[in-house]
Design a protein around this nucleic acid. Structure first.
Length: 521
RNA sequence: GGGGCGUUAGCUCAGUCGGUAGAGCAUCGGACUUUUAAUCCGCUGGUCGUGGGUUCAACUCCCACACGCCCCA
């Protein structure tokens, strides 16, 4: 044996032994307690008896399938038609009554009850009495209906497949502590059906959008997560470094500029559903990484996108709930009504009594107005930026029913096409539900010279200290110089959309592993 | 960054005026062959988030910090 192998093995063994010792001393889990110690001792007995973690049990039925197929059969049917099944899952419920017991096991589809008798199972029955809620078991037996009518399996063979060392939360109260639900999502998912349903709904929502777009001949693509120039949004990026290239890179804040390069390349209908990263604060509506649908549609404008959203939102409600009526955080929404469409300036006038409608583009007037409201403004902010600050402060949170706000100032829309009749504004809108921005769409700026000028203006802002201002992306301008067809583009915040459709108050409720500070200690 | 609230048994939560810490469920032991938050009997289980301070005495009052939740910027 070559000596390097021996050395490798011995060093591995050494590490392994130390890891085992650390484990025995509880160095890797500071929260050892009596309950865990009891279960650890039970596991020790299992190890002594043979393979403690077997992987040779196979199911032939799932809980929901059994309920669907046999839930309606009367008790006598089961006697006339003995039906043998093999089921397996986590023990969620255990009730021992002397020589007979009930247990419920949960698989990915639901729960099914087991009925266990000493007479039928002998020594295994006695062993079962020592098993714990949370353990994973496999059972075979025949279906029957209990005295109270519950479809159950009369077990003729039973095996413990996995010993669980940690107790589950109280079966009645569940896991109420939000911190633990987010940090130990696995426990939350074990005990909370509503949490499982949120994440199932999330996947269904994404699938619905994919199907919708695929049916319209859109091509789904993947563009870089790591970008040398972060573009497509006003946001602070995360930085990283590529060693081999010795190159600073950024996690993307948006895929926009890459997707539009693809439109230049002739992919006239293109979308991506993936993560964006923004180095900003955390809140009920912000996670540093979040999921966005971005789509681009050539030979269309921003109004076509508003129509698409309206159709998609209604279709989603119908697909998920079978009705256009839904409740979010105690407020009911009727999605059959046409979604309101209002300009930024109209909305600002409506929500700012006494404001002079003729001065909405006067920087001095707007600046005074902002200062009165305690809005922090920068010296280099122009009328468009001031107008949008005013909008965000006084209007945004009031937009409860689905609302399109359009005619955004061109000044704050450096990638949008300016309006033909009124160059102060861009052909751009944002979409709001429940006071939150859900989507942002516009007719794309495809004039390469105008785009270059907009980038230069952004760089000037960056030089004045605006950390969210955009970089100059020369290759993107070059792409536009080859010619991008007239195009409309849209970004949809998937997490917030899922929040709305699952009645979730916090973005953390719709992200499996939301970011948190590391646990103390 | 600022403000408010929270952190006590595995889980869910009480804890009065500052006087050596409680309940339900779970666990553990016992009874029970159709339970549905089973029932009955008995016993366990705590660095009261961490560190200081005040006090004869601190879960309790004061300060700092950590983590979380909510609101604001």
């Amino acid at each position: 044996m070559p000596c390097w192998t021996e050395h490798w093995i011995s060093s591995w063994r050494h590490r392994s032994r130390r890891a085992y010792r650390d484990m025995k001393q509880g160095n890797d889990s500071s929260d050892e307690n009596k309950l865990i110690a009891e279960r650890r001792a039970k596991l020790g007995e299992l190890r002594a008896q043979g393979v403690a973690f077997p992987n040779d049990f196979r199911r032939d039925a799932l809980a929901a399938q059994l309920h669907d197929a046999f839930g309606a059969r009367p008790a006598e049917w089961f006697e006339a038609n003995p039906t043998q099944v093999k089921v397996g899952g986590r023990i969620m419920f255990k009730r021992v009554m002397g020589k007979a017991s009930f247990a419920k096991i949960a698989d990915r589809t639901g729960q099914i009850q087991l009925f266990l008798q000493q007479e039928a199972l002998g020594a295994v029955y006695d062993a079962f009495k020592g098993w714990d809620v949370g353990d994973i078991a496999g059972a075979s037996g025949v279906l029957f209906r209990t005295k109270t009518g519950e479809l159950s399996v009369r077990v003729d063979a039973l095996r413990l497949l996995v010993k669980s060392l940690r107790p589950l939360p109280d079966k009645w109260h569940g896991l109420a502590d939000t911190e633990t639900r987010y940090r130990r999502r696995y426990v939350d998912l074990i005990v909370s059906e509503s949490s499982r349903n949120v994440f199932r709904a999330r996947t269904r929502i994404v699938r619905y959008l994919r199907d919708f777009l695929d049916a319209l001949d859109f091509l789904e693509v993947e563009t870089p997560m790591m970008q040398p120039i972060p573009g497509g949004a006003a946001a602070r990026p995360f930085r990283t470094h590529h060693n081999a290239l010795d190159l600073d890179m950024y996690l993307r804040i948006a895929p926009e500029l890459y997707l539009k390069r693809l439109v230049v390349g002739g992919i006239e209908r293109v979308y991506e559903i993936n993560r964006n990263f923004r180095n900003e604060g955390l809140s009920t509506q912000h996670n540093p990484e979040f999921t966005m649908l971005e789509l681009y549609l050539a030979y269309a404008d921003y109004r076509d996108l508003m129509d698409w959203i309206e159709k998609a939102i209604r279709g989603l409600a119908d697909t998920l709930n079978g009705t256009p009526q839904l409740t979010y955080q105690g407020r009911s929404f009727d999605l059959t009504k046409p979604f309101r469409r209002v300009t930024v300036e109209q909305a600002v006038i409506e929500h700012n009594p006494g404001i002079d409608p003729l001065s909405l583009r006067d920087p001095t007037y707007l600046r005074k107005r902002c200062e009165q409201l305690g809005i922090k403004v920068e010296a280099h902010d122009g009328p468009g930026k001031l107008q949008i600050e005013l909008f965000e402060k006084t209007v945004e949170s009031t937009l409860l029913d689905p609302t399109f706000v359009y005619a955004y100032p061109a000044e704050v829309s450096p990638l949008s096409r300016p309006n033909d009749a009124d160059p102060f504004i861009a052909d751009r809108f944002e979409f709001f539900i429940a006071g939150r921005e859900i989507a942002n769409g516009f007719s794309e700026l495809n004039d390469p010279e105008d785009q270059a000028a907009r980038f230069r203006a952004q760089v000037a802002r960056k030089d004045k200290g605006d950390e969210e201002a955009m970089f100059y992306d020369a290759d993107y301008v070059r792409a536009l110089e080859y010619g991008m067809p007239p195009t409309a583009g849209l970004g949809v915040g998937i997490d917030r959309l899922v929040m709305f459709f699952t009645d979730s108050a916090s973005i953390r409720d719709v992200i499996l592993f939301p970011h948190m500070r590391p646990e103390a200690g």
